[in-house]
Nucleic acid binder design. Structure first.
Lengths: 142, 142
DNA sequence: ACAAAATAGTTTGATATCAAACTAAAAAGG
DNA sequence: CCTTTTTAGTTTGATATCAAACTATTTTGT
């Protein structure tokens, strides 16, 4: 390659293609009404022992709190999660997975694995570490 | 670093922060009604000698043709571009910059430069090439 | 030469997203 | 205590985005 100015376009394209792969794989698993951001929330819930508030989720998935409200509303409507008020502080809502939500875990694990396999095709472990390190650096530069 | 599984989140964050930086810099230049995608179109037009159809733009900026219709409609309303039908093939529309559109070039050039300076802070030329190469590889893996 | 297929672009409808204004509850501070 | 400020979350309004259906041209195949 010659120029290095199209890095933003590259990153944008990678993100778009990753999201399309996720949506596509979910479709294959007959999950038609969830977007990648819903997946981010679910995987956060799968992997977090402590209880998570709306704000926790907002910070962790890097989305505005009002966006999280609407994402969670959808997950509630689909009965994947539940929302209960924190007794100690009534401003805070705690989000928990339902049984139906937990059933999605293997599907999302498989989708994640498929995406990582695609992205890292032809990379050994050191190369993976290198690319993540450099992306961490860019991320902290911004 | 430990894990390399959060690469998608990293890429997503970098994209979001880049877009925020762009919107912010445009705001400083009193440009309040353009999103990064409008900037992609304008910069494509700045840098392309040949005439560009709606489809050309759709392919180059990697957005659905219907998205391009609405992005171009906004640019037309703001008088930054014009749309004329191709005489040889009446299905095709050709998009050209107006005088007012060309006036945005220095602003967008400066914004791009600022973004690249941020992203690449602490990188030498070889490191820039390396990261672009690896992103190109990931992009083609998807 | 004409019917069928392909192509370029628009319209329509749905949704994720953000920012700003708002509501309600808790904390701070005099 | 009681007022002020901060904090958590929702509502509202705007917009970029996509996919699917549609319209209008051009191309193709027989």
């Amino acid at each position: 390659m010659e120029k290095t100015d199209h890095i933003i376009a590259l990153i944008s394209n990678i993100r778009d293609k990753s999201n399309k792969l996720i949506v596509n794989e979910l479709k294959k698993a007959s999950i038609l009404d969830l977007a990648p951001s819903h997946g981010s929330i679910l995987q956060l819930l799968f992997s977090t022992k402590e209880s998570l508030s709306m704000q926790d989720i907002s910070i962790k998935i890097n989305r505005d709190k009002s966006t999280v409200t609407s994402l969670i509303n959808k997950l509630i409507k689909l009965r994947y999660v539940e929302k209960v008020k924190n007794a100690d502080d009534n401003r805070v809502s705690i989000i928990t997975l339902t049984e139906k939500g937990w059933q999605l875990k293997p599907i999302f694990d498989a989708v994640s694995q498929k995406l990582l396999d695609s992205i890292y095709r032809g990379f050994d472990n050191d190369q993976k570490k290198e690319v993540v390190d450099v992306l961490v650096k860019i991320n902290s530069n911004l």
